[in-house]
Amino acid sequence: MSTPAQTIDRPRTSPKKAGRISQPGVNPLVSMLKYAFILVILLISVGPFLWVFLSSFKSNLEILNSALALPARLKFSNYVMAFKIAPLAQFYGNSILIAVTGTLLNLTVLGMSGYVIARFEFKGKKTIMSLVSMALLIPGAALLLPLYLTVRNVGLYDNILGLILIYAGFGLPVSLYILSSYFLTIPKELEESAYLDGAGFLRTFLTIILPIAKPGFGTAGVLQFLLCWNEFQFALTLTTGLKNRTLPVALFYFKSQFASDYGAMFAATILVVIPSIIVYVLLQEQVVSGLAAGAVKG
């Protein structure tokens, strides 16, 4: 563990607390390659998105005739149109509610089982893992009809609760993998000493394990949130009224046959995407603080 005192002792490492900085005297060619690689990654990641973002301020004519030019003037009418065409505001509310609750439910359920699976040996563990892995493999198109019937039968059709349950279930395998493999990296000694101190199972889990496992929860949470936020097919199939629909459905309001206006479509795309980027950046800070916590524990 790198305490501040040690860092001061060793001037070659960075004085920063997180201090994992490259050393002086690294091969310049390797450095060049590294930066080139990062630059390419950046360009391909943000290129299409930036282009669509810029284009969302253009008129249809500009988009079609001068693809790379900057918009002549910032044209917000596409965004106004987008709000007029689809019930975006309402869908925003629904999406936020569904994504947040779906993520919390998923993390609670899978945090519990992930811990038990990582830490304890018991009969049937392998069966559970095999079945859960299988869930990862079931094609979505094959789930559509059975899930529709299930949800209808339990009376959750056209109900936000139904979507929340379904999304929590979709994220089940991924969250379980991530969380249980994160729990595996936590040294057992921590719990053993907690037990020696007389703490029970639940207290150990809540006060010792959960705080350390924050990065794991952060990453699983981000993925689960994105899943809830972006899912389209089931949102459409399992609801009927506008009061329960989510944002990705709105995109298709701009995609009807015999429609040709790119500007409004791009604006809608940006409107759907921006919140998830913001949420990611915010949640990411949770992951970062988790990272710092993780660094201390060794």
Binding site: M112, V116, F122, L131, A135, A142, L172, L176
Partner: peptide, 27 residues
């Protein structure tokens, strides 16, 4: 800790059954 182990597994198993058991059988 057997009680806790079971208690911690049950929600996941229920969620799994709700989502996938019926679907897999149909499939």
């Amino acid at each position: 800790n057997i009680k806790w182990v079971i208690a911690f597994l049950v929600p996941t198993i229920l969620l799994f059954l709700f989502m996938y058991a019926f679907s897999l059988i149909i499939l």
